[in-house]
Design a protein around this nucleic acid. Structure first.
Lengths: 194, 194
DNA sequence: ACCTGAACACCGTTCAAGT
DNA sequence: ACCTGAACACCGTTCAAGT
């Protein structure tokens, strides 16, 4: 995929990450091979290794790149609704890039760019009434819950789906689970109207 | 790995699954290659294909085999404690076989042998006061929460671990999360003693 | 000095040749 | 008829040869 003009931009980490994301988003994680990536960039496989250490590092860079686009909380909303909204937004965002959850699950990455999101969520949690000592636990629980929903497309025993109970979208199910968790976590509201 | 006696038992699906589980438990999912598996069974790779369709099917059989050993709830305990105990037991069990969560996350399996566990959990949930229409949602939420804890060894932003807050084991963290979820899910207890 | 085609050591899967 | 060594089409990674 050389630029129509004929000249092709010099290879760089950023160019590699951008193209790799495009492939992963369009065709999934399995389709993102170093051969395919090199071909799409109009270069040889070996050239990639001048900019990245190995595939593992590339996947880490991809997650870090995605983390820059994590949603931010709406300050207009009251603390509790703010929490629900931002986690639903993150669920929707990562559902649109399903390879991200897989990369996180199989590797052991610590995304630098996700730190601001995490930090902001901790203050949202304490704003909502969570004791500071518990905020990190609560954040991790919400994050793990999200990851489970993203990864587990066919929950075990799903097929026995009993009697009535109207079917619901994955998004609704996640909202329900988050709400139940927050019900158990947050102090009952007392100051304002019903 | 031929039996010392010299004769080797005839190859079968069960033999393949047993040996494959041993390899996965001992050396992880990546070490479970069809070459290694065939070698450990003292046969050729092609012979495996007389008993399994492909690697995907083999992994499904492994999960199904593990599902037979899922914990059962202790009927002595009151409903709420029964739920907590069984999910902690399942967490401990699957932590000891970390490849299981990875297989579930990457494939799209529906384990037949997990159905009794799921069914039993639904009755435990309704026993604890959950409306039958919500029991399946609650089961899936708990299961997804578990999966997230099993897969996410380095939660994003984990490295910023703030101030005080005594460090806790993953087991304690999972217990805390399950407890908060059940607090939000189950009706407040009123009939019996404090 | 920098880049990269070709090779290397794997992988899952298939097939044709052996019994 | 049943089994399986050897080959095939991939993969990530390396290296020696090109500019």
């Amino acid at each position: 995929m050389v630029t129509p003009g004929g000249t092709r931009p010099k290879l760089s980490r950023e160019l590699i990450v951008t193209k790799a994301r495009a492939i992963a988003d369009a065709s999934g994680l399995d389709a993102l091979t170093l051969r395919e990536l090199a071909h799409a960039l109009g270069t040889g496989q070996a050239s990639l290794y001048r900019h990245i250490a190995d595939r593992r590092e590339l996947l880490g860079l991809l997650v870090d790149d995605v983390a820059l686009e994590f949603p931010t909380a709406d300050p207009e909303l009251p603390p509790r609704e703010r929490l629900i909204r931002v986690w639903l937004d993150l669920h929707a965002f990562l559902s649109a890039h399903e390879w991200v959850a897989k990369v996180i699950a199989e590797g052991e990455y610590v995304s630098r760019n996700a730190a601001p999101f995490a930090r902001h969520q901790l203050t949202c949690l304490t704003d909502a009434g969570v004791h500071p000592d518990e905020a990190m636990r609560a954040y991790r629980a919400l994050y793990n819950l999200l990851l489970g929903f993203l990864l587990n497309k066919h929950p075990m025993g799903h097929h026995l789906d009993p009697a009535g109970a109207a079917p619901s979208t994955e998004d609704e199910e996640f909202r329900w689970a988050v709400t139940r968790f927050l019900d158990g976590l947050l102090p009952a509201e007392h100051p304002d109207a019903p």
